[in-house]
Every structure is written in structure tokens, then in C-alpha cells.
Amino acid sequence: MAEEKQGLGTNPRQEQPSVPLPRNYNQVLGTNNPGKRSWPELVGLSAEEAERKIKEEMSGVQIQVVPPDTFVTADYNPQRVRLYVDESNKITRTPAIA
């Protein structure tokens, strides 16, 4: 009985963190535009135009222009967007975070 009065067997009150925990993967990574992951509207534009538009929406992104018949690594980088271009430097695939 004396032990119950001293509060044994109960958890002490814990403080709540002042900063909320991240709710999704993009919050953990710190991307500044978590909803946008691809740019299908850029297909057919030049690589320079596409790069400018992507950087307007997602600052700090690394743009990688990929010429035809070029191999790329399979690693994932949430700050990289690959621009696949044809011989005339026009985007041929939807640019996306890769």
C-alpha cells in the first residue's frame, strides 16, 4: 500500500518537444518544394529553359543534362534533376528528381 502512494509503477510526465517532428520524407530532407517531383510541362523545351524554370521552383537543385545514349548512375539524390535531351538539346523525357 505504501508503494502505491509514492507513485511507483507510473511513468513520469514527459515534456513535449517545442519543434514538431517531421511528418513526411520531404520535411526530413528539407526540400523547399515538397509537392513537386517532376516537370512534364518542360518536355520539348531547351535544356537551358528547363533548368531556369526548375531552379525558380526548387532553389539549390543540381541539374544534370544527359545527352542521348549516355549512361547514368542508379543512385538517388533528392536534390538532383536529370534533363534527358536529344541532339538539338531539347528535353525528351519528363524531368524528375533522381
Rank of each mutant, 00 (worst) to 15 (best):
A2C: 08
A2I: 11
E4F: 09
G7P: 04
G7Q: 05
G7S: 05
G9A: 09
P12E: 05
R13Y: 03
R13L: 09
E15R: 01
S18L: 06
V19L: 07
P20M: 00
P20N: 11
L21A: 15
P22V: 01
N24W: 02
Q27F: 04
Q27H: 11
L29I: 10
T31F: 04
N32T: 14
N33M: 06
K36A: 12
R37M: 12
S38F: 04
W39S: 02
S46E: 03
A47C: 10
A50V: 06
A50T: 06
E51M: 05
R52I: 00
K53E: 15
E56N: 15
E56M: 05
E57I: 00
S59E: 14
G60M: 06
V61Y: 06
V61Q: 12
Q64L: 12
Q64G: 10
V65Y: 00
P67M: 04
P67Q: 10
P67I: 11
P68A: 05
F71L: 13
F71W: 07
Y76N: 10
P78G: 10
P78K: 03
Q79T: 11
Q79K: 15
R82L: 08
L83Y: 00
Y84G: 02
Y84N: 05
V85I: 15
D86K: 05
D86A: 12
E87W: 03
E87Y: 05
N89H: 04
T92F: 00
R93Q: 13
A96Q: 05
A96M: 11
A96K: 10
I97R: 09
A98F: 08
A98D: 06
A98C: 10
